[in-house]
Amino acid sequence: MDDKQTVLDILQDLTGEDFSDNLDEDLFASALLDSMGTVQLLLDLQDKLGVQAPVSEFDRNEWNTPAKIIAKVEAAK
């Protein structure tokens, strides 16, 4: 499974929505992700993809859409 699909699966687990066709949805503006969800996301990225992203890294303007998160994960690899 590729990274993109893994990220989409993690997001689906967290929010209950499939973002495959909505890669630019703003997760914070639509309140799909809150601080709890964010932490869970960071932990999942760490466990499932080995991407180390500390809480400080999490700038809400840079991680607010599925597309941006995928890009961050790919850049970190």
Partner: peptide, 15 residues
């Protein structure tokens, strides 16, 4: 408080 206390506390507790 959210970024430097709450989220770090949650992160620690979940991990």
């Amino acid at each position: 408080f959210r970024d430097y206390i709450f989220m770090r506390l949650v992160f620690f507790c979940m991990k």
